Amino acid sequence: MRTIVITGGTDGIGRALALRRLRGGDRVVALGSGPVKGERFLEEARRLGAGDRAVFRRADLASAAVSRAVAAELAQAYPVVDALVLGAYRHHPDRVETAEGFERTFALYVLSRHLLAEGLRGSLERADSPVVLSLCGVGTRAGRIDWDDLQQARGSYRSLRATMQGARANDLLGVSFAERHAGGRTRYVLYNPGFVATGMAEPLRQPARGLVRAMARLFARSADETARQVAEVLDHPPAAPLSGFFRGGPVDLGRPGFDREAAARLHGALQDMLGETVRSDRPGGGGAGRREDRTD
């Protein structure tokens, strides 16, 4: 029986993948911030006769401390992890700071993925065919990384800009992981599923919410179909240390979006962020924005 850890595992693609893996006989640890969705996931697992193989761990992964703690907890509970699927993401129309002083989109979309992949690497390395699969940008040409203001602390906040920067940063996380752990056994897969019908429109303001809903009805693929394709990659991960896919098709990793120097630069920036005491004048952090006090 394999052990699969899925962030964002109680909604959208993550939930569809979690239920598919349970039907296939795997143990699934689903991480999510909502207890209601978590209980629904467990109820569905019980209906499938897989209640003993389904675990829900409530965690707000926008907190770096929580991400670290969850990684350490799972590493101890599961000495062998066969796959880590990084799918947690939430749209924020306004700039929100976590209690630790990080911009919330960057914290959830980038920092948590870095911390979980590094924290669970020991358990992954003990598996027969370990893989980290990150649902991300895979070389998107849209957006850019603002090296001088990674958390949009200066000027006006743009949610789309934050999202697209996160997508590009996640591509670089894969490059960095493969470079720094070149002697390891864990493969890192970057996967962009394209336009998928999930609940991503709900946090949007009108009229954008209605427009996205209408486009989803016309053009989006289902979460179940996407989960089927992702499951195939988990079952048969590529042999290369790093690979990329867009809607199931391979992506050329020789493109500029996968630059090794940029990946090393991002890794250094994350280390600086995560090692600093929270200060309002921290480069790339603090600044104008609504402060969030909870870290559950």
Rank of each mutant, 00 (worst) to 15 (best):
G184Q: 04
A262H: 07
A220L: 12
L266C: 11
E39P: 05
H236T: 10
S243W: 07
F106C: 01
G257T: 07
G119Q: 04
L160Q: 13
V28I: 10
F246S: 05
R95F: 09
S176F: 02
Q229K: 14
G249L: 07
R213C: 10
R15Y: 08
T105P: 00
A153N: 03
L120M: 10
A167G: 12
P207T: 06
R217K: 06
N170K: 08
S67R: 00
G183F: 06
E261M: 04
E261Q: 12
E39S: 09
G8H: 12
G14R: 00
D272G: 07
G12V: 08
L270K: 00
R90C: 15
L19H: 01
P35Y: 04
T198M: 11
A220T: 11
A197R: 03
P207L: 04
S280K: 08
A178M: 03
G101A: 05
E276A: 08
R185W: 12
L253Y: 01
D296I: 08
A263G: 07
K37A: 14
V28H: 01
L86I: 05
I6K: 04
A264S: 15
Y191G: 02
R40N: 13
A64H: 01
G248K: 08
T140D: 09
G166N: 05
S280F: 15
G248D: 07
V70Y: 01
D149I: 05
G24N: 02
S159N: 12
Y188K: 02
A197V: 05
F246A: 02
G194K: 09
A50D: 10
A201R: 00
T198C: 13
A288I: 06
D11A: 15
A99K: 02
G199Q: 12
E44G: 13
G139C: 12
N192M: 02
R217I: 05
R158S: 15
E39F: 10
R154Y: 03
A201G: 09
G184P: 12
E118F: 00
A231E: 05
V28L: 04
V189R: 03
E276V: 05
G210I: 09
A30R: 01
Q229G: 15
A220I: 09
L115D: 00
M200S: 14
A197Y: 04
I4H: 04
V251W: 03
S123V: 14
L22V: 08
T98S: 03
A142M: 13
A169E: 06
V132T: 06
L133Y: 02
G286N: 01
T3G: 13
V96F: 08
S63L: 02
R58N: 10
V175W: 03
W147S: 03
R247V: 04
Q152V: 01
A162S: 10
R185A: 13
V233W: 12
A83P: 11
V132L: 04
T3P: 14
A64Q: 01
Q271Y: 00
R221M: 11
R27S: 09
R187A: 10
V251N: 03
R228V: 13
